[in-house]
């Protein structure tokens, strides 16, 4: 493998981590959705690059799925949901932005340490990819944990899944069936969560999941 291919793959994967960080400090819903769309675009470019490097045509299909569903369909759908629900567009965060960013940096460092050490004798490209993918997964989880709004939790979940796709494409020889089934399961999860959002709104007039806790008679 030439050094150019490696560098570009590295750049794209690093770009994904960077976009994940961008996602961490968004405090408006529309901005968050736009960043998620960007995240998915970077992912599909990265997957397409992997397809080119590994000479695996089925990965182009994966890239296309990522582009169509995650960069276009899901963000547009979420935009429309937000409009129809008339959600308050500011996101209430649990922890301050600065603290969240610091925690995110710690997570990236942790995943680097773990992955680079565990996969010491693996292909260098796969190693870097895995390390970045783990950071993206952890950052996606962090987004889910630090937000109160259900829509932003959906976005956190989707970005987490982007990390999984990155890991899957970085490893050579991942069958297409696995990728397609992952993509479809994500789509189904999105549909289910979307329906849930409407149901929650119908009942409680808000998608702040704090209302659910109040409904269950608990203190926050």
């Amino acid at each position: 493998m030439g050094t150019l291919e490696f560098d570009v793959a590295h750049l794209l994967a690093g770009g994904l981590v960077l976009v994940s960080f961008v996602m961490l400090y968004q405090d408006r819903l529309y901005a968050l959705l736009n960043v998620f769309a960007l995240h998915s675009v970077v992912l599909s470019v990265s997957v397409g690059w992997q397809a080119f490097v590994q000479d695996a045509p089925h990965l182009y299909l994966t890239a296309l799925i990522a582009l169509v569903f995650k960069a276009i369909v899901i963000p547009v759908a979420l935009h429309r949901i937000i409009q129809r629900l008339g959600i308050h567009r500011e996101i209430e965060t649990v922890v301050g932005v600065g603290a969240t960013m610091l925690v995110g940096m710690g997570l990236v460092a942790l995943s680097m340490v773990v992955m680079l050490r565990v996969t010491a004798d693996a292909d260098p490209l796969a190693r870097e990819d895995l390390a970045f993918a783990l950071s993206i997964v952890l950052l996606g989880l962090l987004v889910m944990v630090t937000r109160r709004n259900a829509v932003s939790q959906v976005v956190g979940f989707m970005s987490l899944e982007n990390g999984l796709v990155l890991a899957a494409t970085g490893a050579k020889g991942m069958p297409l069936v696995v990728e397609i089934s992952v993509a479809f399961s994500i789509l189904i999860a999105f549909i289910v969560i979307g329906i849930f959002l409407f149901r929650i709104r119908e009942r409680f007039d808000t998608v702040d999941i704090g209302a659910l806790d109040v409904f269950r008679g608990e203190r926050r």
């Binding site: 942790l110 952890l138 989880l141 889910m144 944990v145 109160r148 999941i209």
Partner: peptide, 17 residues
């Protein structure tokens, strides 16, 4: 709360890592 459960999953994952 849901967020706390998520947080527990998250902390467990980070702890194991």
């Amino acid at each position: 709360t849901i967020r706390r459960y998520l947080g527990m999953v998250f902390l467990a994952l980070v702890g194991l890592l």
